[in-house]
Design a protein around this nucleic acid. Structure first.
Length: 403
RNA sequence: CGGGGUAUAGUGUAACGGUAGCACGAGUCCUUUGGGAGGAUUUAGUCUCGGUUCAAAUCCGAGUACCCCGACCA
């Protein structure tokens, strides 16, 4: 894409009311725009990033047999009365025509469970795994930290349906592995730890995926040896010991909850009477699990993890483009050709064809954070070279280039 | 929801109670191109409502918004 055509312009300074790193850099770089606290517009560069995160998540969900659906964001309140979750403070409620009460979706058990009931009739229909990537609305008392805690945000939620608890547990382990693949591809593998957390009403534990970050609002107790952590909220229950090796040498770290998985068992299948007939025509209750990853929170987390004083440093698979091509001086013809050649080779290229000073282009390149920068200039062309520099390295390399 | 802070142009920042200014940005034209270039020209602002005053960006009151801390967080 030609940068002169790009809708956005970068900002030299971040708006003074932004404190968090991800919000500052995303706004300065023109990835997002804030409409109101916790609510953001995604601009062309930001959409490219979010689509990349979604692509990774989709691929890994499909890999374990997930089928993608899109559930409504607007729910009738009745469904929430069924599970007695119609009084939660976190819900946005609204009134429609004829005073009908609606809820904006903040999670989707109340929608997916009755939906599943329309098709799950026999043991032959199980197991089944449904996921979606959808906007969630949560009436947070305090939105904060840019994309890390919003009132409207994008989330992937997966719901699994099983004939028994054993099958649920098997799939639960499969999802754990899939999640680690996702974090690996997002560049966060070394910073993300499976964490024991409160299981709420239905089980002793749930599992969270916590990504280490100074800007995180959670605290985890990490066992360096076993690579597993315990959320602060339940550390006393666990008597300050690692759940695996039982050692007490735990490190306290701040972290961001980037994913969580829950064994729901029959918490939702019961109120919605989600059942099936087994081999002997016995009516049995369905067991469920749910598994979430905050797509937009993940995007914010990646920036918190990968940036320097100049800007964002996108991991390869997340970056809005592969190559940032920057012409300096009178090299328009050569730059245009290189731009087309690079694209022909299958690269996503952002070509800075703007009439701007060299300094400005280079500064913008650092801010936007595309992994590979290629500079084409009179100087380098004389040496029959173009100059390449990786965003995460200091070293400038020269690559042979015959025009 | 409790506490604290802030509010002037798209962004950043000035202005004793007395003419709202500067820089960057943006638009047009020309010159420029290795770390936010130069010239010419144009553009745009005191959060809202009320009060005090001859006079309010400035003082007072209420509201609103945003940020931070805490609480909350399937």
């Amino acid at each position: 894409m030609k940068q002169s055509q790009l809708f956005i312009k970068t900002l030299k300074e971040a708006p003074k009311d932004e404190q968090s790193i991800n919000a500052k850099l995303l706004i300065r770089g023109g990835f997002v725009d804030k409409l109101t606290a916790g609510v953001y517009s995604y601009l062309p560069l930001g959409v490219r990033v979010i689509r990349n995160v979604e692509r990774i998540v989709r691929e890994e969900m499909n890999q374990i047999g997930g089928q993608e659906v899109v559930l409504p964001a607007l729910h009738p309140e009745e469904n929430w009365r069924m599970t007695k979750r119609d009084k939660e403070e976190i819900m946005f409620k609204l009134k429609g025509a004829n005073k009908k009460e609606y809820v904006l979706g903040w999670t989707h058990e109340e929608v997916v469970t009755p939906l599943a009931g329309k098709f799950i009739k026999s043991y032959k229909d199980l197991p089944v795994y449904l996921y979606q990537i959808q906007t969630k609305f949560r009436n947070e008392l305090r939105a904060k930290s840019g994309l890390l805690r919003g009132r409207e945000f994008s989330m992937k939620d997966l719901y699994s349906f099983h004939a028994d608890e054993k099958d649920l547990n098997l799939f639960y382990e499969k999802v754990k592995k899939a999640y680690f693949k996702i974090f690996k591809r997002c560049g966060l593998k070394d910073k993300t730890f499976l964490t024991l957390a409160d299981g709420g009403a239905f089980s002793k534990y749930s599992h969270e995926f916590q990504t280490l970050s100074e800007s995180g609002e959670d605290e985890i107790y990490l066992c360096d040896k076993c690579k597993i952590a315990i959320n602060k909220e339940i550390i006393k229950q666990e008597k300050n010991r690692c759940p695996i090796c039982r050692k007490k040498k735990l490190v306290i770290e701040k972290s961001i909850e980037t994913g969580n998985i829950f064994s729901l068992k029959t918490r939702f299948s019961e109120p919605f009477n989600l059942s099936f007939k087994d081999e002997k025509e016995q009516e049995k209750i369905v067991f469920m699990g749910c598994y979430g990853i905050g797509i937009s929170r993940l995007m914010g987390t990646i920036i918190e993890a990968y940036h320097d004083e100049r800007g964002i440093i996108w991991p390869q698979e997340i970056a809005p483009f592969d190559i940032h091509l920057i012409p300096i001086g009178r090299v328009k013809k050569e730059a245009e050709k290189l731009y087309h050649d690079l694209q022909k080779e299958g690269n996503q290229v952002l070509y800075d064809d703007r009439d701007k000073s060299a300094g400005e282009k280079l500064t913008d390149a650092d801010l936007i954070g595309i992994p590979l920068r290629m500079v084409i200039s009179e100087k380098s062309l004389q040496k029959r070279c173009i100059e390449t520099k990786k965003r995460d390295e200091k070293k400038v390399k020269f690559k042979k280039y015959n025009r």
